[in-house]
Write a protein that binds this DNA or RNA. Structure first.
Lengths: 130, 130
DNA sequence: TTCGATGCAAACCATTTGCATTAAC
DNA sequence: GTTAATGCAAATGGTTTGCATCGAA
């Protein structure tokens, strides 16, 4: 699926969840899709969004990310550096995946293997993994 | 191992790492040992420490917890609520364990099963798990 | 005696919020 | 036209830091 298709799909999800489709939300989604491999912080997303000549405030980026987290389009990740990062959910992913954080360079890698599948079966939906 | 033994042992670890054994550090260790089952935040630890009539500032608690994290006596855990929690390492534990956070009541449970053992074998010591 | 440790208050900084204005529906 | 969404600036709150003092070694 290319970016335009994915954008269309996520916009539809937003709309179906009862939210208005504003240009600010659209450009934030676009930045997330264009940087799917990275784990961007709100400030970084704000920076990229501004580069697209978007008229947007940082608070709106935060508010948009909160909505996207609520409707499960992105996952919010907290490492110990005091900055939350946001990760687009993989197509069809039903649960969180893990990350490796390099203590030397700070880079983040994803663990592809499904480490939690077995345990998740035991849990109800009021529970999230960490 | 009872609390007094454990305290003696962790104090030794602190000292062997080149840190001074101050009353503030000792009482912080004691609170951590007495609440081993909980996942206390710095503020909560400060509260318990103060209850022991200790003359200590919140900044010292933070500084002590940073040291204890560095020398691997505790693990620092970040959920998405903006408060770091601190978890005494289990005796002989060589890697991080996982947590379940209840979205209704906020309680935290530990996952006993070793979910990461296999993958850890692939990694060098510059890497931490999340 | 020395140098690390402490307490306090101020600084920091990511995130949230109040409010008047704007725009999606 | 209604109501949610936005931008801005101010507030929030957990954590860190500067600095003078203290005390473990």
């Amino acid at each position: 699926m290319n970016i335009q298709e994915a954008l269309k799909k996520t916009k539809k999800q937003l709309h179906e969840s009862g939210f208005k489709l504003t240009p600010q939300r659209e450009v934030t989604l676009l930045v997330l899709l264009e940087n799917e491999k990275d784990h961007l912080s709100a400030e970084e997303i704000y920076f990229f969004v501004k580069q697209k000549n978007a008229d947007i405030g940082l608070a709106t980026v935060y508010r948009t990310l909160e909505i996207l987290t609520d409707i499960k389009i992105v996952d919010k990740i907290s490492f110990d550096d005091g900055v939350a990062r946001y990760d687009l959910r993989k197509e069809g992913a039903t649960h969180f995946h893990h990350h490796l954080l390099c203590l030397d360079c700070g880079c983040i890698e994803e663990i592809e293997e499904d480490l939690l599948g077995e345990v998740e079966g035991l849990l109800n939906r009021s529970t999230i993994f960490w």
